[in-house]
C-alpha cells in the first residue's frame, strides 16, 4: 500500500490516480479528508466512466499527479 494521501487540501483541477488505475480531475473538494468530487479523464478498466463525475473515496486515491 502506498502512503496515505491527505486529500483534504487538494485544490480543484488536481489530477489523481485511483486504485484501479483511473485518472480523475478534482471538480470540487469538500475538505473533509474523505471524499473528492472528480471527473474521470482516463479509465482503462471501465472506459464508460470517462467524462462522468463521481465522488471518490480518499482510500481509493493512490497518487496525485504533479501539475
Amino acid at each position: 500500500m502506498s502512503d496515505p494521501i491527505n486529500v483534504r487540501t487538494l485544490p480543484p483541477g488536481t489530477r489523481i490516480v485511483t486504485a484501479d488505475g483511473a485518472v480523475a480531475e478534482i471538480v470540487s473538494n469538500p475538505a473533509d479528508g474523505v471524499w473528492l468530487f472528480a471527473r474521470y479523464v482516463e479509465s482503462p478498466s471501465d472506459p464508460a466512466l470517462v467524462g462522468q463525475e463521481d465522488m471518490i473515496f480518499a482510500q481509493d486515491v493512490v497518487e496525485v499527479r504533479p501539475t
Binding site: 469538500p30 465522488m55 473515496f57
Partner: peptide, 23 residues
C-alpha cells in the same frame, strides 16, 4: 459545507440530508 461526512466509516450526506457517499 457541501457535505456532512461521518468521521467513523465515511458515509457522507448532502445538505439536503441525502446519503450521497458510501465508501
Amino acid at each position: 459545507t457541501t457535505v456532512f461526512t461521518c468521521p467513523y466509516h465515511g458515509w457522507s450526506y448532502g445538505t439536503d440530508g441525502r446519503l450521497v457517499g458510501v465508501p
